[in-house]
Amino acid sequence: MSRMIANAASAFAPSAPVCDHTTSCITCGDVAVPMNVMRLDDERGLALCADDDGNSETVETDLVAPVAPGDRLLVHAGTAIAMLSEEGPV
């Protein structure tokens, strides 16, 4: 038991950006982010999307295809899981 606690205690906050206890973890929290489609890679079924803060990400669009630049998508773990009809929170 004590060894277990000692090992657990050695878990330290890494320097790499991770979802830690002070922020929200996209996966664990069932969190999805609204993003706007900027550019399409039709051949590979991918889209370059940007969130409301301007952060961009390559997103799988297979589940909501077809998409067009300007569409607003709900993105979870790099995949669009729903098409949003209006600007706003999720």
């Binding site: 277990m4 090992n7 657990a8 878990a11 991770v18 979802c19 830690d20 973890c25 996966t27 664990c28």
Partner: peptide, 17 residues
């Protein structure tokens, strides 16, 4: 793996260990 998994303790340390 995703970030949060790194810190989950197993029986002999975590993935971070």
């Amino acid at each position: 793996c995703f970030g949060d998994m790194l810190r989950v303790p197993g029986s002999d340390g975590s993935l971070l260990d």
